[in-house]
Amino acid sequence: MDDYPEMLAIVRALARYLRANPNSSDTAEGIATWWFREHSVVDGRALMDALDWMRERGLLEMLSANSTGDRYRCIASAEQLDGVLSELSRRRLT
């Protein structure tokens, strides 16, 4: 994971966003557009990898919807998100 700084930076940004907006839910496209307004471009592959990384750790869940696409929703507690942020703060991110 340390050799994938783009994905780690997105995980960090997602954890911060979800810490401030715990009831957020959106598609990957919506996340790239609305949750990352400050960034001009979010790498789509790195975003999907970050979403998968967070799902594998029980921080997000994916809700399938045929009409609107898969939606991602936070299921982590504030403490879990703080733990991710703490772990990532100890890693070197570009």
Rank of each mutant, 00 (worst) to 15 (best):
E38F: 05
D82W: 07
A46G: 05
L51C: 07
E61A: 04
M54T: 05
F36I: 04
N66W: 05
R45G: 01
N66C: 00
V41F: 11
T27D: 11
N23W: 10
G30H: 11
N23K: 15
G69L: 07
R55H: 06
E56C: 07
L51A: 03
D52C: 09
P22N: 12
D52W: 11
L59G: 02
R45S: 06
A78Y: 06
D43W: 02
E61C: 04
G58R: 10
E29T: 15
G83K: 11
A32D: 14
R71E: 09
W53T: 06
D49R: 13
G83P: 01
N66Q: 03
R73D: 02
G30R: 14
L47T: 06
S25A: 15
N21R: 11
S67W: 08
D82S: 14
A46Q: 05
L60R: 02
S86A: 14
T27L: 13
A76Q: 02
S40G: 03
S67V: 04
D43T: 01
S40E: 15
L47Q: 06
S40D: 14
S86G: 10
V84L: 03
S77R: 06
L63A: 06
V41E: 08
L47R: 06
S40L: 10
R37H: 07
A65Q: 03
M48S: 10
M62D: 01
L60Y: 09
S86T: 13
D70P: 03
W35A: 12
T27A: 13
W34M: 11
S40A: 10
L60G: 02
R71N: 02
C74W: 01
S25Q: 15
L88M: 05
E38Y: 08
V41C: 03
A28I: 09
D49F: 07
T27P: 09
E87Q: 12
I31N: 06
E87P: 03
M54N: 04
S67Q: 07
